[in-house]
Simulated scan of single mutants.
Amino acid sequence: MVPHQAIEVALAALTGPGGGAHPVAVLERHGVVAVLVDNPVGRAIVFVEHRDGQWVGPGIIGGQFHRTVDRRTETTPGQPIQRLSRSRYSTLTPDGEPSELSWFGVTGIAAQDAAAVTITSSIDSMRVDVGDDGLVFAVAQGRTDEKPGVVIHTRDGGAHLAP
């Protein structure tokens, strides 16, 4: 993992300084860094923005509790990602309303036959290789009111839409 200034901001936002969290993966897109963070109770995607020359953490963080799961050998249609977790991050306008655009993240565990994951919104798309351990982690920008599609691509050329 490449060191990034936003990692410390993400860790502090999730656990406070010196907490039991550690970064798992980092993705940087258009002035936003998504940091996938593990701590003793769960995993979360923390979006950190670059504003006015500094990295700023979010006020709200979403994630999931850890659940032990055996990684499948083959991708299952209808549930191609185990422990699927989706997160959305948006800022507020000066009027206190949600911005028109948000950042969306997806994480989970893919089967052993999975090669890549794609997250696609109406305005953005990102395709990322699945980690050797099955880790799925991708982010894309989209309209705040949409739910971007998430597809697992298998080594045999298959494509499976996540629910």
Rank of each mutant, 00 (worst) to 15 (best):
2 V>Y: 10
3 P>S: 15
3 P>E: 15
3 P>G: 15
4 H>M: 06
5 Q>V: 04
6 A>D: 11
6 A>N: 07
7 I>K: 07
9 V>Y: 00
10 A>F: 01
10 A>M: 00
10 A>N: 01
12 A>H: 09
12 A>K: 12
16 G>H: 03
17 P>F: 14
20 G>S: 11
20 G>E: 13
22 H>Y: 12
22 H>R: 14
23 P>I: 08
24 V>C: 04
24 V>P: 00
25 A>L: 07
26 V>F: 03
28 E>L: 02
28 E>R: 01
29 R>Y: 03
29 R>G: 01
30 H>P: 00
31 G>E: 00
35 V>M: 03
38 D>W: 04
39 N>L: 01
41 V>T: 14
44 A>H: 14
44 A>T: 10
48 V>H: 09
48 V>I: 09
49 E>P: 07
51 R>M: 14
52 D>H: 13
53 G>P: 06
53 G>T: 04
54 Q>Y: 02
54 Q>D: 11
55 W>I: 04
59 G>M: 11
60 I>G: 06
61 I>G: 03
61 I>A: 09
62 G>S: 15
65 F>P: 00
65 F>A: 14
66 H>V: 07
66 H>F: 12
70 D>F: 09
71 R>D: 13
72 R>S: 12
72 R>K: 13
73 T>S: 12
73 T>W: 03
74 E>H: 11
76 T>K: 13
77 P>F: 10
78 G>H: 08
78 G>E: 10
80 P>K: 15
81 I>L: 09
83 R>S: 13
84 L>Y: 09
86 R>A: 07
88 R>F: 09
92 L>W: 05
95 D>A: 15
95 D>G: 12
97 E>D: 15
98 P>Y: 14
98 P>I: 15
99 S>A: 15
99 S>W: 01
100 E>Q: 11
101 L>D: 08
103 W>T: 11
103 W>H: 11
104 F>G: 06
104 F>C: 05
108 G>T: 03
108 G>K: 05
108 G>M: 05
108 G>V: 04
110 A>C: 04
111 A>E: 09
112 Q>I: 02
113 D>G: 02
114 A>W: 00
114 A>R: 02
117 V>D: 08
118 T>Y: 06
120 T>M: 03
123 I>R: 10
123 I>W: 03
124 D>E: 08
125 S>E: 14
126 M>E: 13
126 M>V: 01
129 D>L: 06
130 V>F: 03
131 G>S: 03
132 D>G: 12
133 D>H: 00
134 G>N: 01
135 L>E: 07
135 L>K: 01
135 L>R: 10
136 V>T: 01
136 V>K: 04
137 F>H: 05
137 F>C: 00
139 V>C: 12
141 Q>K: 12
142 G>D: 06
145 D>C: 06
145 D>T: 11
147 K>S: 13
147 K>N: 11
148 P>M: 10
148 P>W: 11
148 P>Q: 14
149 G>W: 07
150 V>Y: 02
150 V>L: 02
151 V>D: 10
152 I>G: 01
154 T>H: 02
154 T>A: 05
158 G>M: 07
158 G>K: 05
158 G>V: 06
159 A>K: 12
161 L>Y: 10
